[in-house]
Computed example of a mutant assay.
Amino acid sequence: MVTNDAGGQAFNPSLWRQRRAFVLEILRDHAVTSVMDYGCGEGALLSVLTQASCVDGITQLIGLDLSNTALGLCAKACEPWQVDYDNLRESPLEINLYQGDATVPDKRLAGSDAIVCCEVIEHLQPHQVRVMLPILLSDYQPQLLVVTTPNIEYNINFPELRYDTPEQQLRNDDHKFEWTRHEFETWCRNGAQTYGYTAEFYGIGKLNHPVVDIDVGYCTQACVFTRSSIAQPRTNLSQTPHVSFKHIIFPWYNFPDKPEDEAIEELSDIISTMTLVTTSPEALSSATLNWCETWSWDQVMDSPPSPTVLSNEESHATIVHCDVSFEDVWNVLRVRQLCRTRERLRDFLEKLPQAHIIK
């Protein structure tokens, strides 16, 4: 089995991290709100997608796997933490995990914006792989499908696998096959053309010092299918053969709006805390914004703004007044809960006395 090393050299970052980063970037670029992980395993992807700051706007996650053991670990990884109760999401998040065969369709799995099938097909028998794209692209019809699989040509960089010899081995004992780039691209293009999708190909993972200096592509090959035509009506998708394994609902902020005067008062307190910090003259040179951890600050600026100094002779302290932008304020979870929309926040800001907000 090949792990993260080849000939004493490692992928940096590790290959699985590069694959996950690639998938997350694709999901962000397409602004999906619902994702199915087809062959979710222990939840390496789904558990990250539960984080509200990971891919904005996700409200529905589905995981499918054949292994009850893997699903048990996945369910544990996807459960809400205490921080999820302390910092409520702006929108609901529902997760459904199913135990079942990936080559059998289930009507409950249709309807996701995106399906991810990461390092799955190589674990299937050839006759099972032949029905994968009909199920994924015709039965389920997502707007987006991401498939990754090993590129066998890259195995020449793993001497222990003895690539292209009679003793050739695959990267994992459970792999039934590993495709060349041509084989993978042919399978993807045929499916895309048949079911009304475009297919774009990518490579993931290269060693800094490969064993050979010839072009053998990347360690992992990927295809992103994007729907290019109007979906055809689904046929014969009426069965529910998979077993419902776990249903998880994340806590979210579904309380009624505060009265406007109370919301504005709380917003004023938040902004005051963001922009003002009292410090001694000796500490002035190192003064920065006093961020409040309980607000789940998502995007701290690269460098704090230059402070404006106001002296306080009676207390012999110094007030450091820092400007913040509209986006700084909007990025505070509690502000989004209070205002819900950017337009309402702008309306509230017009009614505040603070003059240190960049509109």
Rank of each mutant, 00 (worst) to 15 (best):
N157D: 14
L345F: 01
A75I: 03
E260V: 13
V35P: 00
D37N: 03
L276M: 12
S311A: 11
N151K: 06
L161R: 01
Q128A: 04
T50M: 05
Q337L: 03
N172T: 02
Y140H: 12
Q143Y: 05
E90W: 02
Q337I: 13
D347E: 15
Q354M: 10
N331D: 15
A263P: 00
V329T: 11
L207P: 02
P304D: 15
G72A: 12
S315F: 12
C78P: 11
E314M: 13
Q51I: 09
W16R: 00
S53M: 05
F201Q: 01
K76I: 02
A114T: 08
W179F: 14
I95F: 09
E122G: 09
Y202W: 14
R189E: 04
C117F: 04
E90R: 08
V329G: 04
T198E: 11
N312T: 08
M1Y: 02
G111H: 00
V277A: 10
L289N: 12
G63P: 00
H242T: 06
N96V: 02
R181V: 12
L24W: 01
R20C: 06
H175M: 12
A231F: 01
P126L: 01
L170A: 09
D302F: 09
I121G: 00
T186R: 04
L276I: 15
I264F: 00
V335M: 01
W81G: 03
S311Q: 13
T198H: 08
V83G: 01
G72Q: 14
V32Y: 06
C118V: 08
P105A: 10
E167Y: 08
W179V: 03
I121S: 09
E122K: 10
L289K: 14
W295F: 04
L289W: 11
P256G: 04
P256D: 01
G205T: 08
R89D: 07
D302R: 13
N4C: 02
L338D: 03
P210E: 12
N208Q: 14
L46E: 05
K246T: 14
D174C: 10
L144A: 09
Q232Y: 00
D56A: 15
Y218C: 15
D29C: 10
P126R: 05
Y98W: 06
S47V: 06
I271A: 10
A114W: 02
